[in-house]
Design a protein around this nucleic acid. Structure first.
Lengths: 154, 154
DNA sequence: GGTGCTATTTATAAGGC
DNA sequence: TGCCTTATAAATAGCAC
């Protein structure tokens, strides 16, 4: 977008790809932060570079409200939530139908109400679990290792 | 950014806020998609508007590779994964210390290796669970309702 | 892996329909 | 609500450190 127009296709040169990843990641996080503030929205971004590094953005409002809302859950909501996680766990244990393709082709937008969005930690090392629950198929990805750095915007 | 500079603060007029949300959401998704293609990265975005609507972006590479990688997990990895979900479930059940504030102030970047990022569906209605596991604190948020629309990028 | 510097390309705030 | 248009603000590609 600057000293010349570029084609939106994989950057083959690894160095250039890394530089672009870094720049555009910062740009994306900045945009996400602006959206959060301007529109009073909640945004969560998880991204993994081609080198396997993970970067995450979570809007302040999400984390703050998550803590508050836990106590706002009534018994039925809590029950439903546990059921969801339980089912997820069972799916992992059964580990079947793992190779089914996503019917949306990978890029999807879901609009409307949501059943639950939660973020919280366990007592062990740093972990991130993103569970996406859709009818009739499931996917799973896993990597290993760990270290953390904090990131503050402007 | 256009016919005048704006301050990055909540747009009070609800109509304008909604318009800006819609425009910037599309912009963010477009940027995310470009980043995915250009840098061969995996990006997942979940956002909730001030009116409670949920929108989600998942890069094609994520979903495709998730399915494949499930079968690549060895026993230990699977065991660790189940343990994570199990712990999460316990935390939900115990429902304690829910109001602890996030030490990072909400906006964080985690760099380095990751333990697990998984996305998969259950057999019921459309559900999304985003579990974020961090040491020493946890948060939870929940909403309700439901409908889905798919979204295809240019 | 950053940072700084532009020339350009994009994104988008305000309006208008 | 959504889709155009257009002037302007931002983002960023390509280089140099």
């Amino acid at each position: 977008m600057a000293r010349g127009k570029i084609q939106i296709k994989k950057i083959e040169n690894q160095t250039n790809r890394q530089v672009t990843y870094s720049k555009r990641r910062n740009g994306l996080f900045k945009k996400a932060n602006e959206l959060t503030v301007l529109c009073d929205a909640k945004v969560s971004i998880v991204m993994i570079s081609s080198t396997g590094k993970l970067h995450e953005f979570i809007s302040p409002s999400i984390t703050q409200r998550m803590g508050e809302s836990l106590n706002d859950l009534n018994y039925e909501q809590l029950e439903e939530l546990m059921e969801n996680v339980d089912n997820s766990l069972k799916l992992i244990r059964e580990r079947k139908d793992a190779r089914q393709e996503d019917p949306y082709g990978g890029l999807v937008e879901q609009e409307g109400d949501y059943n639950s969005v939660l973020g919280f930690p366990n007592g062990g090392g740093a972990r991130i679990l993103a569970l996406r629950l859709q009818p009739n198929h499931h996917h799973l990805h896993s990597g290993g290792g760990s270290d953390i750095t904090t990131f503050g915007l402007g």
